[in-house]
Design a protein around this nucleic acid. Structure first.
Length: 261
DNA sequence: TTATATGTTCTTGT
DNA sequence: TACAAGAACATATA
């Protein structure tokens, strides 16, 4: 679930539920999600403190504390925030208890996500070598970062050091909207195609966020709801094919995304 | 019961 | 050595 648009929606939840309210306590239900920090240190660093800002960079949420430190959330394949208004979420891993708001739970079902503590918001970004955020990446940055590599265009879109925020589903969607085959080598993309790819990336992400990253709400003509072998392409009635690209399933329409060598 | 799954990171291979 | 592709990770769902 969580790619850039989903994480953007989660940031909005975080801001509403956690910003500018004193953290009274936190409950660590499953310490497996703690990365590079133990429960004791985490509690010491958070109790009595306040989240004063939040930044989304790619698929990460960086929550800045009034101490200057930042708590970093990543959601893996199955993570989300849940505001507790009744029963706790069955898969909650960490619960933040606030002075004057309901608790916020960090949930990770398959435990592939993680929470870590960083010296500062920017420190984390540099350490991870995260590329520019897909939503704010300029056309120039996009072109120079993508024209450098040599693999397939899809692998490059998913490489967080090149551009951060895209995952398997949105990489497929962007290529579909741009009429580009996922296995097209980067080296064969011309300037015109890179420009179009950049424009398409912005448009797809923008539409996804406006529809709360919910595929069911999104307009027709998107591959998102047709990720199944043998489905009809929502644009040209061609057949949706499934192939493997860098170990992940890729869906594309064989008649409107022609392969270029 | 088995195959598949949106994530990152470590390992392997070219 | 550098880059790119593949395996592993944990667990729910179809």
């Amino acid at each position: 679930m969580p790619e850039l648009p989903d994480v953007q929606v989660m940031k909005e939840v975080f801001d509403r539920c956690a910003l500018n309210s004193r953290i009274d306590d936190l409950e660590v239900v499953n310490a497996k999600v703690l990365r590079g920090v133990d429960e004791k240190k985490l509690k010491e660093s958070l109790r009595g403190k306040t989240f004063v800002e939040s930044v989304r960079r790619g698929k990460y949420i960086l929550a800045g504390l009034d101490t200057g430190q930042a708590l970093v959330f990543h959601f893996g394949m199955t993570g989300y925030f849940h505001q507790r208004n009744g029963e706790p979420d069955k898969y909650r891993c960490i619960s933040f208890v606030f002075e004057n708001k309901p608790s916020l739970e960090y949930v990770s079902i398959r435990l592939l996500g993680g929470v870590s503590l960083s010296g500062s918001v920017n420190g984390f970004i540099n350490e991870k070598k995260l590329g520019p955020d897909a939503l704010s990446c300029t056309q120039q940055e996009f072109e120079s970062r993508l024209s450098a590599g040599s693999g397939s265009v899809k692998s490059a879109l998913m490489d967080q050091e090149k551009i951060s925020g895209l995952g398997n589903i949105y990489a497929d969607e962007i290529l579909y909207q741009a009429h580009i085959h996922p296995l097209t080598p980067l080296s064969s993309l011309g300037e015109k195609q890179l420009k179009s790819l950049h424009r398409t990336m912005h448009r797809v992400l923008d539409v996804a966020i406006r529809h709360h990253a919910n595929p069911a709400e999104m307009p027709g003509g998107y591959l998102l709801t047709h990720r199944k072998k043998g489905e009809k392409c929502p644009r040209c009635d061609g057949e949706v094919k499934k192939i493997n690209v860098s170990g992940r399933s890729s869906y594309y329409c064989e008649s409107c995304q022609k392969k270029v060598q």
